[in-house]
């Protein structure tokens, strides 16, 4: 029996950004994609949503200070 880790309450929402969305994020933050926080492609969550190296994930998580917080991670191999 395999659990769907994405449904676990401690796993925040991860979504793969489309090319245009990714470009927009990189442009808004004024960063090179390499300067974003990283996530490994073999990370359980990355595997579950089938992210490929080079993708940028949008992570929306609960925050003590801000309520909702959005961050991004670059998928590495």
């Amino acid at each position: 029996m395999k659990k769907d880790i994405l449904k676990h309450k401690l796993v925040p929402d991860h979504t793969i950004l489309s090319d245009t969305e990714a470009k927009k994020v990189v442009k808004n933050l004024k960063v090179h994609p390499e300067q974003l926080p990283k996530i490994k492609a073999d990370d359980p969550v990355a595997k579950a949503i089938e992210a490929k190296p080079g993708d940028i994930l949008q992570i929306t998580r609960k925050s003590h200070t801000a309520g909702k917080f959005v961050t991004y991670r670059l998928v590495l191999e």
Binding site: L29, V31, H32, E34, L36, T65, A66, V70, Y72
Partner: peptide
């Protein structure tokens, strides 16, 4: 110092 992002918003709420 390399420009790598640690938080997209300071303290997550920018306060």
């Amino acid at each position: 110092n390399r420009g790598v992002i640690i938080q997209t918003q300071y303290g997550e709420d920018g306060i």
